[in-house]
Structures are given as C-alpha cells and as structure tokens.
Design a protein around this nucleic acid. Structure first.
Lengths: 295, 295
DNA sequence: CTGTTAGTCTCATTCAGCGATACGATTTGT
DNA sequence: ACAAATCGTATCGCTGAATGAGACTAACAG
C-alpha cells in the first residue's frame, strides 16, 4: 500500500531522553501498572452485574466483583444513574436497574422477536435429531455461527458459541459455502486459502479438496468427517433465498459414535426440510433483486 | 517518588510551530467545533436506538440518528458486536440486538419485577386468589418465567421456578403472546412452531390452534385447560405498556379442582386489575418509541 | 462503464477518563 | 457515647484511548 508519503515532517517525534531515568521509568511509575480497561467494557459489565444480581447491590460489591478502583466505580455508577440506567431504591445506598434500562430491556425483547422464528425452528430440528444444530454464514474467509441449539450432553460447551468463527476448509459449513459460491468470489477465496491440517482427516491437498467441493456441489450437502475435531462428525445443507442463492448454512454436529457417514442418510431429508422452513422464517423467500444472469 | 526529573520542566514535546497561533488558539481551534461526547453515552445511545428500532438497522441510519461520524459509528458497532451486545442477521449488512443484550434484558426484567412494588403486587394477587401466580415474557420462542409467588399447597414445586422456560402452544401465557403478536412475526412463528402433544388436551391441530388464538385475541385472556399438565388449569392476561403493546403476561395456575373454565370468570377482573397495576409499577421510561414501520 | 453510496484505513491530536491520595460522612461495635 | 471501621466524595496532574477529517476501496445501481 502506498503509504502516503510523509507529510513532510518525518519522524520528528522526539523520543524522550534515553537517560537513566528511562531505566527508572521502566518499572517505575512504580507499581502503577495501570491496567486501563476501556470504559465501554466497564459500563456494560456494570449493567450486567447489577441486572444479574436480581436485587439491589452495594456499590462496594460491584466494585469488588469487577475489580474497579473505588472512585472509578462511584463515578461510573453515578453516571449511569444520571442517565437513568441505574437507580437507587429508597434506602439510597444500594443500586438497581433504572427505568432506562427497563425500557431498553423491553425494546430488546421486542426487537429480538424477528430472530425467534428461526431459533424456534432450529430448536425443533435439534429436538428431532437429538443433536446439536447451528446456523452459520460466510463472512470474510470464515464461517460465523449465527445461532445454535445445544443438546444436553454435547461435550464441547463453550468453544463454539454464537459469534465464534471456524475455518472454511475443514468444516461442513465452510466446504458447503465454497462449493456453492458464485464463480468469482469462489476463485478469489480458493486461491488464497491455506489448507492447514487441523486433524488427521483434514483435506490438505488442493486437488483432493477441489474434488470434494465438486462432489458437494453435485449432491447438495456436505460432511465434516473428523476433519476439524477428532471424534466429531458434522453434516450441513444450504439455506437458500428465493432466487436459489445460498445465504446461510444449517448444520448438525455430533460425536461420531452417534452420527456418521452411514447413519446420516436418513437425517438428510429432515435437515433439508428444516433448511427450507428456515429460509421462510428468516424472510428470505421475499422477492430477491434479480434472478442471477451471468454465472 | 522518582518523578522523572529529567524532563521536569522541559516541554520536550515541541510539536506545532510556536507562533502567534497561540493567541489564535484562545477561542479558535478554528471552526473545529469537535464536540466530543463521552464514549459511554454513545454506547448506551447506540444500544437504545438499535433496540428501539424493533427491526434490523443499517449502520448508516444509526450514525445519522445519533449524529456520529462514519468511522466512529462503525468502530462502536463493531466493538459492541464483538462483545455480543449487537449482532448482524443473515444479510450481514444490518444490525440488531445480540445475545448478550438479550440476557441482559431478561436479567433486567427479572430484577425489576422481582423487587419491591411489582413483587408485592404479585404477592397480593396470589393472596387474594389463594393460588400460585406468575409473570412471564416471550423470548426466543419460549415463555420465560420472571417472577412467581407460590401458595403453600402447590404440587409442582421446583419445576417452574423463575428463569425456567415453557412452550408456547400449550400454555396460557404462550398462547396469549401468540394471539397478540404483530402480524409478521406471528405468521413466521406459527409456520415454524411444532405443536407436540404434551397432554391429552393439547391443541395439536394447526387449524384448531389458530381458531383458539383468534378467540383469545377477541376476548383478551387465555386459558390452559390441562393442555400442558394433566389436572392443572391456568389463566393469563396481558400486561401492556403505555402504547398498548403487550410486554408480559400475568397468570394464575391451580389444580383443576380449585380452578376451571366455570369458576374462573369471577377472578378475571381481579387478574386484569393486577395486570394494569403491575404495568404502572414497572415505571417505564417515558419513551416507549413508536411502532416503527418502514418508510 | 460511470456515478453513487457504504464501509475501511490512517494518523496526528486531544481531552475524557483515570486512580492515588486525602478527606468527610456513615454505620458499627462495644 | 465514643471509637473504629467502613463507605462515599473531592481533588488533580497525567496519559493514552478514542477521535474524526480525509483519502481510499468495495459494492451496487442505472
């Protein structure tokens, strides 16, 4: 990148005297390891803690729980109180949620209504299959999990929550996206996609990998047969919009003892049905711009 | 304190030309009226706006509404997205509330309703009716219990505590929510909602179920006549905000020997009165927002 | 192909936030 | 009642996180 040619001045930026005081400075400022966490995080954390408490809380406890210095805690809470996000009930010393936060809460639930149908359908699917299911989209070279319903005995609890990203080349969802992408973006992605080995079965050879993609494009679904995590099998089908373009992926994952190439066949129709329901639930059936012309 | 004396007085900094501009600086800094509003306000404002929208929003609109510079808006939203407070639905361009904000919302409401005025009113109601009463909201295709007052001889002790979830199609609260939902989410939810049989009287037929919802919408309250648990009768009425939107449900449940279709009539006014008291006790912020329709 | 619009990047500047310290205000223990 | 402990408030110089103008790129629409 062209690195805009200095605005003339160059690095005038005088480094400070490298004298002994540097050494002193190094760890001095003393124990002043100001670990300054951004304000935003603290604000959100305070709201979280106060709301989760379920009952009025002492400022001290909030400060302790979040490891906030005393004045800082007071300042933050006073600020949130002023804005109406927190409030102090009668006794004046304790802190609870305020009216603004209540309104925000109500609006939040109302807004998340749009996500309820697809989530409900996902849950129904998960119930029917008895396994963990999730929805993902393609975003900048990764698959991002949009929603997820876990079954009780799923071993990998926290690692793949909503919002987490997984690679393209070794996951059922990722390979599915690659297989169904329009020519151009597909090229661009494939050309610079590394195929690092994640597990024994990962497809690391480009030729093999392309063959796999062709086969997926032909049959309309994809598997991850321990290519990402040992012992985990995964199957994915596309969620398409009204014009037939693949917008998202729907996947089921399970320990290999419960799901495998052999046993997955009878579940595929169930998956496909859920996928088309989901398209409707997500409002993808609406008139889609233009029917694709150039391939 | 070592106080790095070295630099002591010297303003090594020496950046801009030390010209007359010092004088000019006095009131100027030019037309550069950088009105820098604190980060915290902006974070809260963004959450407010996104939640109040009721539907996914374009970044541009958020930026406009809050008079935020373009890069700042993107930075803020990206940060909130990373933290899980905001999320982007399928299309990836728009922004909505995220999972973290949803749990914050639930916790907030639980805190609000579990405390002084609301909880007291719920207890009063329970006392007056002599039966177990509870409050719930709709979230993610379930009813979530936010508060509850049990009578002594209630048989189902632990199963339905605060925070537990029950299905929509076979509970008084759930059917009430469905009956009063706005058209679009209602249709999509109904499309996706399985109607599994939970008890002998569960309404499993879609046509019958829709008829039931219509009837509920018409009369303003709902029953669960042994549709979920044998021997348990339940009645629910809506709690509405200032704009008339249903935000929560208030319900009474009892063994059928003590409460039934016949004997419930005289209790309904009591329930409705409690519901409107609770709405008032919720003390919402003054801005319930308008029922945004797309322009 | 060109204009339009939305999103990204860079970077010098600056002020909002910070928290150590100190001091008043309460509550608590005896 | 009086300490003692605890909690809340006020002050203030330092600093780096946040900022936003501007330039650039990507995505589309016509």
């Amino acid at each position: 990148m062209t690195r805009k040619i200095a605005l003339g001045s160059a690095p005038l930026r005088e480094p400070r005297e490298p004298t002994i005081d540097d050494a002193a400075d190094g760890n001095a400022t003393d124990g002043n390891a100001t670990d300054r966490r951004p304000l935003a995080d603290r604000v959100l954390a305070v709201l979280d803690v106060v709301a989760a408490a379920g009952q009025p809380m002492a400022v001290k406890d909030i400060a302790e729980k979040l490891a906030l210095p005393k004045p800082t805690a007071h300042r933050l809470i006073a600020m949130l109180e002023e804005r109406g996000f927190l409030a102090r009930p009668i006794d004046g010393r304790l802190v609870t949620v305020g009216p603004k936060l209540r309104t925000l809460a109500l609006n939040t639930l109302r807004s998340s209504l749009g996500q309820a149908p697809s989530h409900a359908r996902l849950r129904a699917l998960s119930l029917e299959l008895g396994e963990t299911c999730n929805i993902g989209v393609l975003e900048g070279g990764d698959v991002v999990y949009l929603d997820r319903v876990e079954v009780e005995n799923w071993p990998l609890r926290l690692e793949f929550g909503v919002g987490s990203r997984v690679p393209l080349h070794c996951t059922a969802m990722g390979k599915l996206f690659l297989a169904f992408l329009p020519e151009l973006p597909r090229r661009r992605l494939l050309d610079c996609l590394p195929l690092p080995r994640m597990a024994a079965a990962t497809l690391c050879d480009p030729a093999l990998f392309r063959a796999e993609l062709d086969s997926i494009a032909a049959c309309g679904h994809s598997f991850d047969d321990e290519e990402y995590m040992p012992g985990v099998f995964c199957a994915a089908v596309p969620i398409r919009d009204g014009a037939g373009r693949m917008i998202a992926a729907l996947a089921v994952q399970a320990p290999k003892v419960r799901l495998s190439r052999e046993s997955v066949a009878e579940r595929l129709p169930v998956l496909h049905r859920a996928a088309s329901d989901m398209a409707r639930a997500l409002g993808l059936d609406a008139a889609p711009a233009e029917p694709a012309l150039s391939p």
